[in-house]
């Protein structure tokens, strides 16, 4: 017969489990480094990079929208309540439901995933930016204007630098939230660490699930640490000892 069954060969091949890796000999192992090594370049690394891309795009767009909204609301106080209500509503929609709601409009695309992710960042980023701007002491603002700063100079030279710690606090929460939420994006688009996690959930071989999930956690911790370092670097004044 031209069609030779794999079972007929000496080594059992179980593609779903080990994809021909060294883990085949011990299918019961909880975690197998060999699999990670063998599948790094064609599965895990691309998924990680896609995940980072999904996150960066969501945070980028979310920040831009939240930033413009916060600046406008900072000038026109009445805008704060409607923005908080709308972004708060978006924040309460269950993520899976939001993905499904968007599919009829934007299809099973990356756009769908990003719209959902962005909508979850808005409330956190907007509130923190606005709180940071509002926390600038009145006498600091008065002194700045009294010395002849224009509204724009006041914003860029005084208010925004002073709001940075609060803005970064919001950014840290938003980034960690998006990194974890982006795994669910796999339901609309086969990208990011959600793909290997989903794949891992559907088999008894646990290495893929643990590896992808672990990468997701590491990415979140690493991003958070990076933001902390960045914030310290650009606002050294926030750390000096108070008398």
């Amino acid at each position: 017969m031209a069609f030779a069954l794999p079972l007929a060969q000496s080594d059992p091949v179980i593609p779903e489990f080990g994809r021909g890796s060294s883990c085949v000999r011990d299918p019961d192992a909880l975690f197998c480094w060999g699999w990670v090594k063998d599948n790094w370049s064609d599965t895990l690394q691309p998924a990680l990079l896609q995940h980072i891309a999904l996150t960066l795009i969501a945070i980028g767009i979310g920040s831009a929208i939240a930033f413009s909204l916060a600046l406008t609301a900072h000038r026109r106080g009445w805008l704060t309540t409607p923005v908080v209500v709308v972004t708060g509503f978006l924040y309460t929609i269950p993520s899976l439901a939001l993905f499904q709601l968007l599919v009829p409009f934007t299809g099973l695309t990356r756009t769908t995933a990003e719209i959902a992710l962005v909508s979850y960042t808005l409330l956190i980023l907007f509130r923190n930016m606005l709180a940071g701007l509002a926390a600038v002491p009145a006498e600091v603002r008065d002194a700045a204007i009294g010395m002849g700063m224009t509204a724009r100079q006041l914003l860029w030279k005084v208010e925004l630098p002073l709001a940075l710690p609060a803005i970064f606090a919001g950014l840290r929460i938003a980034v960690v939230t998006v990194i974890s939420l982006a795994t669910i994006a796999v339901f609309v688009v086969n990208e990011g660490l959600g793909a290997p996690i989903y794949n891992g959930l559907q088999q008894t071989f646990s290495t893929e699930l643990i590896a992808a999930g672990g990468l997701c956690v590491l990415l979140a911790l690493f991003s958070d640490a990076l933001l902390v370092l960045l914030q310290r670097a650009i606002s050294p004044w926030a750390r000096v000892a108070r008398r």
Binding site: P137, E139, V140, R141, D142, A143, A144, G146, V158, P161, L162, L164, S235, W237, A238
Partner: peptide, 10 residues
């Protein structure tokens, strides 16, 4: 001014 209003970040 009384509260001086120095810029804390500078």
């Amino acid at each position: 001014i009384q509260q001086i209003g120095l810029f804390p970040h500078q």
